[in-house]
């Protein structure tokens, strides 16, 4: 499934990951920044950020044939200095709770499947909130991670702001960006407590405490739940990028999509995913079947894995092409071209 900037969700269905059937487009009209699928309730959640009517999360339980209006909506208090303008992240849990991250950076929770939302206000009340600000895409909470080994552990990342961890399901928060370099700050100030521009992180489903992180310059790994970070991106053609995804069963394997700092295209115009299988010691270019030259990139929610064996990889580009690999990146095939700019890709098992 691909959501994009022209307010369209394109759905593609396959039984064998070889032949793809287009379903839709559906839900036309407003920018779709991100999406998520809840296996338990078989619900597809889509962030609809309307220029006219504001942000909402619409839901479908029939693979996009019908959608609801998205419940009560998102807002801060009337006298709050900030307001909610967009939804950037959605994370359903296996306990019936759904989390959502918004611009201006904040975290919401629904305990009724998205009918109504309330803010987990402790995050914005953190003393480091004054260090948060807008990046190129806005001031957004774009990533929510649920620790697969500990239900009380919750992670978020916002740009600009950094990565934060809660060990009590959101009641209190700590910045855990120590050691992540903020290259856009002057020398001597590049390792602040907060204010980093984390682009994406992924918790390893295969090893407790392991986090992969793509920063605004730098790819990092933590093996202690974010207490310390190791820079593992120096051998990539560019350590700048947006998505990072973790292999579902192999703890040392992760995928990134490097782009130049500006313009945000693949280095040397060679469209490619990069993979490490040794926890970041080495990176391997995966481009068999991808076209070149290209003038395109992939946004932070534009790459996903499935949980099949071998693992499938899917990514959508800023120039509207959707690619997949059914063999862990050994070969690539196009699912679609000529779509609008792709903001997000989601896999529905």
């Amino acid at each position: 499934m691909g959501g994009n900037g022209k307010g369209v969700v394109f759905l593609y269905r396959s039984r064998d990951r070889t032949q793809w059937e287009a379903v839709g487009p559906v839900l036309t009209g407003d920018p779709i920044y991100t999406s998520a699928y809840d296996v338990n309730s078989q619900t597809l959640f889509v962030a609809v950020n309307s220029e006219f009517y504001g942000p909402s999360i619409c839901r479908s339980q029939d693979f996009g044939a019908s959608w609801d209006t998205g419940g009560s909506g998102f807002h801060y208090a009337a006298d709050d200095a900030e307001k909610v303008t967009q939804v950037w992240s959605i994370r359903p849990t296996n306990r019936g709770v759904v989390y959502a991250g918004v611009d201006a950076s904040g975290l919401f929770l629904s305990d009724n499947g998205g009918d109504s939302w309330c803010e987990l206000s402790a995050l914005r009340e953190h003393p480091t909130h004054d260090h948060w600000g807008p990046g190129y895409g806005g001031k957004c909470l774009h990533t929510i991670g649920l620790d697969p080994f500990n239900d009380e552990r919750l992670y978020i990342a916002c740009s600009v702001g950094g990565i934060y961890r809660s060990v009590d399901a959101g009641d209190t928060w700590d910045p855990i960006s120590k050691g992540i370099r903020a290259e856009f700050l002057p020398d001597g100030q590049q390792f602040p407590q907060a204010g980093q521009c984390v682009h994406k992180f992924a918790l390893s489903p295969a090893r407790a405490g392991r986090i992969w992180l793509q920063d605004h310059g730098g790819v990092y790994r933590s093996d202690d739940g974010g207490d310390t970070w190791l820079n593992i991106g120096e051998s990539l053609p560019s350590d700048f990028g947006f998505p990072i995804v973790a292999h579902p069963t192999e703890a040392d394997t992760a995928y990134v999509f490097p782009v130049e700092r500006w313009p945000r295209w693949s280095p040397d115009n060679m469209l490619s995913v990069h993979r490490t299988t040794d926890a970041g010691g080495h990176w391997e270019r995966l481009a068999n079947g991808l076209p070149m030259p290209t003038y395109t990139g992939v946004l932070r929610d534009g790459m996903r894995l499935d949980s099949e064996s071998p693992v499938g990889i899917y990514f959508g580009t800023t120039s509207g092409s959707l690619y997949h690999s059914a063999d862990e990146g050994a070969s690539w095939h196009a699912i679609a071209h000529q779509l609008p700019r792709i903001y997000s890709v989601e896999v529905v098992p």
Binding site: S50, Y53, G54, G70, G71, S72, G73, H75, A78, K83
Partner: peptide, 13 residues
């Protein structure tokens, strides 16, 4: 039509 007001006006009025 529950939710419609939030689509038309901001919470600050």
């Amino acid at each position: 039509y529950p939710g419609m007001a939030n689509w038309i006006a901001e919470v600050n009025g």
